[in-house]
């Protein structure tokens, strides 16, 4: 009896460890393959399976890294990401704090107002026309402002503020501090973990955002990396500023350029997320979806 039980346990272990290993391989191999493709010269681009590049040619990497346009898009993406994160944290905390205070008369009204947006939105066209009516087309604000608040994040932050010890705020009030001071000097410094989570969501979300740029930005000088990458998949010429392309006879294969640019966009995330994942996970589990 005991031996039988042990046997089934070992089988279960083997099963679980193998499944997980296979899953990870299916994730790691495509990335590795992307790298192999990025250093493969034209002559070696064949339908032959290779685990490792037969000849290493950094031509595509050189083309990508020396592309002024790519760095311009990189700069646009960094600026938009940082600005959107700061703006979003400002809107979220200044709105979540008042509705977390029981003595605030407009608390119910404003909470309802934000909850409604969870169920109803204008939809694509009214949203698009709205941005255009506000005169935000071809400005960075079209990428920064629409995503600044979301009902989910506001409620998350409100709940966090609510569970902070109430005595702190009362004591500060008795000392004559006003709510603006209390929020920025007392409440926010105590809320750093949740702010970190919200900031990370914004950072990753904005780094990956592309649809807003596709809709609201027509000027190629203001494109973000994701949109450049999207264009690149249609024509490799998109890597240059005017879309004129590079000398075809000299150029590395288009597969390699696409693969390299892709890695270029993915790399910052790969480098950062393993160290920050606990904040992401925390936000997800604190976030209130509980059985």
């Amino acid at each position: 009896m005991k031996i039988k039980k042990l046997g089934s346990d070992i089988a279960l272990d083997i099963f679980c460890y193998t499944i997980v290993a296979i899953l990870c391989l299916t994730i790691v191999i495509p990335f590795w393959n992307l790298f192999v493709t990025s250093v493969t010269p034209k002559s070696e681009m064949t339908l032959e399976f290779k685990w490792f590049p037969t000849v290493v040619d950094w031509g595509a990497w050189k083309t990508v890294v020396t592309s002024g346009y790519l760095w311009l898009c990189f700069k646009n993406t960094v600026v938009r990401t940082l600005l959107a994160t700061v703006v979003s944290l400002f809107f979220l905390s200044t709105f979540a704090y008042p509705i977390s205070r029981d003595e605030f008369p407009a608390r119910r009204f404003l909470t309802t107002m934000i909850m409604v947006t969870m169920f109803f939105t204008g939809g694509l066209i009214p949203t698009y026309l709205n941005i255009s009516e506000l005169g935000l087309m071809d400005t960075i604000w079209a990428l920064v402002l629409p995503g600044a608040m979301s009902a989910f994040n506001v409620i998350l932050l409100k709940n966090f503020f609510k569970q902070l010890p109430g005595g702190l705020v009362e004591a500060a009030k008795i000392d004559g501090a006003n709510d603006v001071y209390i929020l920025f000097r007392i409440v926010l410094p105590l809320s750093l973990p949740i702010l970190a989570t919200l900031a990370l969501w914004q950072l990753v979300g904005n780094w990956n955002a592309w649809f807003d740029c596709l809709l609201y930005i027509n000027d190629r000088q203001q494109y973000v990396l994701q949109i450049m990458l999207r264009e690149l998949q249609e024509t490799v010429a998109a890597i240059t500023e005017g879309g004129a392309g590079v000398d075809a006879s000299q150029a590395p294969p288009s597969e390699a350029i696409i693969a390299t640019s892709n890695l270029f966009v993915i790399l910052p995330i790969i480098c950062v997320y393993p160290f920050l994942q606990k904040y992401f996970v925390k936000g997800l589990t604190v976030g209130g979806i509980k059985g």
Binding site: F91, L92, N130
Partner: peptide, 25 residues
């Protein structure tokens, strides 16, 4: 509560401009 109203103002304006105006649309 003037400071609380003041704090809620940017978010309120955002809601009107970026959530409720398109809803009307």
């Amino acid at each position: 509560n003037k400071y609380l109203y003041l704090l809620a103002l940017p978010g309120f304006i955002w809601l009107v401009l970026f959530a409720y105006k398109p809803m009307l649309g």
